[in-house]
Amino acid sequence: SEEELEEFAKEVLRRGITIIVNGIRITEVEIFVKVLREILEKR
């Protein structure tokens, strides 16, 4: 749901943790923004 997305976004921003994806360091915020864009483009 959109509320869950908002909560996830807030949690990500609070933690600001960097994770490893395919050997490249990407912040969770960047991943969230990318996923959010993909979701919005599909609408």
Rank of each mutant, 00 (worst) to 15 (best):
S1G: 11
S1M: 15
S1V: 12
S1E: 07
E2C: 15
E2I: 15
E2R: 13
E2A: 14
E2M: 14
E2G: 11
E2V: 13
E2K: 13
E3R: 14
E3Q: 12
E3N: 14
E3M: 12
E4W: 15
E4N: 10
E4Q: 12
E4T: 14
E4V: 12
E4H: 12
E4F: 14
L5Q: 02
L5R: 00
L5A: 01
L5V: 04
L5G: 01
L5S: 01
L5C: 15
E6A: 11
E6K: 11
E6M: 14
E6L: 15
E6S: 07
E6R: 15
E6V: 15
E6Y: 15
E6T: 12
E6I: 15
E7N: 12
E7P: 00
E7S: 09
F8Q: 01
F8R: 04
F8M: 05
F8C: 15
F8D: 02
F8S: 02
A9M: 13
A9V: 12
A9W: 15
A9T: 03
A9K: 00
A9P: 04
K10G: 03
K10T: 03
K10H: 03
K10S: 02
K10F: 03
K10P: 00
E11K: 08
E11A: 08
E11F: 00
E11R: 06
E11Q: 06
V12Y: 00
V12D: 00
V12G: 01
V12T: 07
V12H: 02
V12F: 03
V12C: 09
V12S: 03
L13P: 00
L13K: 01
L13E: 02
L13H: 02
R14L: 10
R14G: 13
R14N: 10
R14E: 10
R14A: 14
R14H: 08
R15H: 08
R15K: 12
R15C: 15
R15Y: 07
R15P: 07
R15N: 10
R15Q: 11
R15S: 12
G16I: 15
G16V: 14
G16N: 08
G16T: 04
G16R: 05
G16Y: 11
G16E: 06
I17G: 12
I17D: 07
I17T: 08
I17L: 09
I17Y: 06
I17P: 00
I17M: 07
I17H: 07
I17C: 15
T18M: 09
T18Q: 13
T18I: 15
T18R: 10
T18W: 06
T18Y: 03
T18K: 13
I19T: 01
I19V: 10
I19H: 00
I19Y: 00
I19N: 00
I20Q: 04
I20W: 01
I20G: 01
I20L: 06
I20Y: 02
I20H: 07
I20A: 05
V21P: 00
V21D: 00
V21H: 11
V21Y: 09
V21E: 01
V21K: 03
N22S: 07
N22H: 08
N22V: 07
N22K: 09
N22Q: 08
N22F: 01
N22E: 07
N22A: 08
G23C: 14
G23M: 11
G23V: 09
G23I: 12
G23W: 12
G23S: 06
G23Q: 07
I24Y: 01
I24Q: 10
I24D: 05
I24F: 03
I24G: 03
I24W: 04
R25G: 06
R25F: 09
R25E: 11
R25H: 13
R25N: 12
I26L: 10
I26A: 04
I26K: 02
I26Q: 03
I26G: 01
I26Y: 04
T27K: 06
T27P: 08
T27V: 11
T27I: 07
T27Y: 12
E28K: 06
E28D: 14
E28Q: 11
E28N: 12
E28G: 06
E28I: 08
V29Q: 03
V29F: 10
V29A: 06
V29Y: 10
V29T: 04
V29W: 14
E30F: 05
I31F: 10
I31K: 07
I31E: 15
I31G: 11
F32R: 04
F32G: 00
F32D: 01
F32I: 11
F32N: 03
F32W: 03
F32E: 02
F32S: 02
F32A: 08
V33N: 01
V33A: 01
V33K: 01
V33D: 03
V33W: 03
V33G: 01
V33Y: 00
V33F: 01
V33L: 12
V33S: 03
V33C: 11
V33H: 02
K34V: 06
K34T: 06
K34I: 08
K34N: 09
K34F: 02
K34S: 08
V35I: 15
V35H: 07
V35E: 03
V35W: 07
V35P: 00
V35K: 04
V35N: 03
V35T: 05
V35M: 11
L36H: 02
L36P: 01
L36W: 02
R37I: 11
R37Y: 04
R37M: 13
R37A: 06
R37G: 05
E38K: 06
E38G: 03
E38C: 15
E38P: 01
E38A: 04
E38V: 05
E38T: 06
E38S: 02
I39K: 02
I39F: 13
I39Y: 12
I39Q: 05
I39L: 14
L40E: 03
L40N: 03
L40F: 10
L40T: 04
E41R: 12
E41G: 12
E41H: 09
E41M: 08
E41K: 10
E41Y: 01
K42W: 06
K42F: 06
K42Q: 12
K42S: 13
K42G: 12
K42L: 09
K42T: 10
K42I: 11
K42E: 10
R43Q: 11
R43D: 09
R43W: 15
R43E: 11
R43M: 15
R43N: 10
R43V: 14
R43G: 09
